[in-house]
């Protein structure tokens, strides 16, 4: 089985990092994986997205055209990708930022105010992890101990305090269901 994921939002929201954590989750779980960033002339405040594939078999195209899972963290990204999600797919949006209403009834649509939840808990900038946490519960893709291991791989030891903060945000997202 192959799970294809697109993560999209503003540059600076941690889109590429979230994708990297998911890719490392795949590695920790012994799966095949690929991570491909959009690398246009992007910068903080511009748009950023990445494709992540997690599979039991070798991965063909690493560029995801029709995702099983979409995490959209701003309006332009939501509008760009919502039409591409496979029927039966899972879509998560940050409703603190995305105003658009869902126009599809053939997908599972989850809207959580991740940015507000993060700032209310003093974890500014962790909306990405909250959304990932919720996505993991909705999809059953990886267990929390796998996520923890992946996080330890993605964050350098000298910034180890961030592992705890990120894991707290992931748990908060998971508990929001």
């Amino acid at each position: 089985m192959t799970t294809e994921i697109i993560l999209a939002g503003f540059g600076g929201q941690g889109i590429l990092f979230t994708g990297k954590v998911l890719a490392y989750c795949g590695l920790m779980a012994g799966k095949e994986l690929s991570w491909l960033p959009s690398y246009g002339p992007e910068m903080r405040g511009g748009t950023a997205n990445c494709s992540v594939c997690i599979s039991d078999e070798p991965i063909g195209s690493p560029l995801v055209a029709n995702p099983d899972i979409l995490i959209a963290m701003n309006g332009p990204s939501y509008n760009k990708f919502i039409g591409t999600v496979k029927p039966g797919g899972l879509v998560l949006v940050d409703s603190s930022i995305v105003d658009e209403a869902c126009t599809r009834d053939d997908i599972t649509y989850v809207a959580i105010p991740a940015t507000d939840m993060a700032s209310e808990s003093g974890m500014n900038g962790s909306a990405n992890m909250i959304l990932m946490g919720r996505m993991l519960v909705e999809s059953g893709l990886f267990d929390m101990d796998v996520v923890k291991k992946a996080m330890e791989k993605c964050i350098p030891p000298k910034r180890a305090n961030l592992i705890e903060v990120n894991m707290k945000a992931v748990q908060m997202g998971a508990a929001s269901k």
Partner: peptide, 10 residues
């Protein structure tokens, strides 16, 4: 090519 250069894999 740019895709192979930019992508991450084990």
């Amino acid at each position: 090519d740019g895709l192979l250069g930019q992508m991450m894999e084990p």
